[in-house]
Nucleic acid binder design. Structure first.
Lengths: 243, 243
DNA sequence: CACATAAACTGGTATAGACATCTAGATTTA
DNA sequence: TAAATCTAGATGTCTATACCAGTTTATGTG
């Protein structure tokens, strides 16, 4: 199991071995693993070397320690999943629904001041504005408006939009979205939302404004969505920063 | 600088000291810090202890190492910040407002079915229920209800609640919250919210339900908050998972 | 001056041992 | 029986040392 002659560091070998046991369910969640001294004894290695291996697994979230008790296996992270940064399409599929779209409008307009600022471009720079009703299992779920700087995303057609905009962006344009910020607020459906979402006047809606950034930090798109509050909850998971 | 008699571990003292130098710009990005052997010599501590301190700073992103060259200061991450996992108090301070609370009720009740399930306890297990109006700059911002299993958090008094619940939990009880999931939805203010948030009937509110987990995955608290939609937007940042 | 080589650094890996602190269970004591 | 105490074993901290493997710099040598 542990080869002291190998050029691969011992701590790394042990690390991979224990990780393997966890990922294959041989060590179960909340089960105590052998103590540091046991590992050291069994493989005839130093306890500090064992600690180096286990510490790495702790910081990777595979294990947790309890002083005086032992070291235990963590529950398999439900999902490393895309921490919320998903497209509508991905999001709905995740929820077991069938996503679709209905294009309302698609045009090139000059960016008004606020929009220009958020997209990091000059005022009146041409941008695409795409308005769509987003459906899940053929029921209106959200009214979505996407803004894209025209210079970054050239040659957009309504055909592309109807297929997969994100796929086009990632594969054809070779642009990678690495980060996004979202603002989420509650509001009352405006007239256009009442109409397209088929809700009563005075109904609540969840407004989500997302700005996405490329790897170099360039703002890339801005999406404003109004979700039917009776059909959609925004769900996400967060980790606490290790102070 | 380093006090060997202190009950605070030496590596932690050194860690805090170097972190301080970085955060205050005394050590600049890409600047090499003293070598491990220099630190060891200067403070008369073992090199392994120095390594423990520096390793922590490396995994926290403050430093990076280059074999044979040295250890260097990382560019300050645009945001180290608590990725959204903040208390109301922290959140409001971040926004430049002065947080405060008004206790509405504080009692021990048996957990009803749904609550029990979400907290991973048996039905009718005693739990604390704490209802508070949360204020920012003395204006009602949210109505918040916190549920805590009584067996996990013993000896809670309204005095503690009025100071800092989280501080009490982390410092006195030595419990660390590592993860949380949130559900965010839009709704219309209910009667109790109309009353305490001082809004009109029919006003929209942002409902946030957060479940927090300890390091071992035990559900620890459930917080239901209703925010005034006209005063509060939920903001967060996400990274795209590296597939 | 140009170039190879050696020396003097750097961080990376590993050892063996010591003592501290915390936990859980066994044992003793009131 | 119940409470207090002890103890074995777990992780946490720390030391002193050794050697390895890269990188840089000084030192010679042609």
């Amino acid at each position: 199991m542990i080869d002291k002659q190998s050029p691969i560091p011992i701590y790394h070998q042990l690390e991979e071995y224990v990780k393997h046991l966890i990922e294959n369910g041989i060590l179960k969640p909340d089960e105590a693993i052998p103590s540091e001294r046991e590992y050291a004894e069994q493989y005839q290695i130093s306890r500090m070397t064992v600690r180096q291996a286990l510490n790495n697994l702790v910081s990777d979230g595979y294990l947790y320690r309890q002083k005086g008790r032992g070291t235990f296996v963590n529950k398999q992270k439900v999902e490393q999943k895309l921490q919320g940064l998903t497209s509508f399409t991905e999001d709905m599929k995740e929820r077991g629904m069938e996503p679709s779209s209905r294009l309302i409008s698609f045009e090139i307009i000059p960016a008004e001041q606020q929009l220009a600022r958020k997209l990091g471009i000059k005022e009146n720079t041409p941008i695409y504005e795409i308005k769509r009703v987003r459906l899940a299992d053929n029921v209106p779920m959200a009214l979505e408006t996407t803004y894209l700087p025209a210079n970054l995303v050239k040659g957009l057609t309504d055909e592309i939009i109807n297929k997969s905009l994100y796929q086009y962006i990632e594969e054809k344009l070779a642009l990678t979205i690495s980060e996004a910020t979202q603002q989420i607020e509650a509001s009352i459906a405006k007239e256009i939302e009442v109409k397209h979402l088929q809700v009563e006047q005075g109904s609540p809606v969840l407004l989500i404004v997302r700005t996405s950034f490329l790897q170099d930090g360039t703002p890339f798109e801005l999406v404003k969505s109004a979700y039917r509050a009776d059909r959609y909850k925004f769900v996400h998971t967060m980790q606490r920063a290790t102070k």
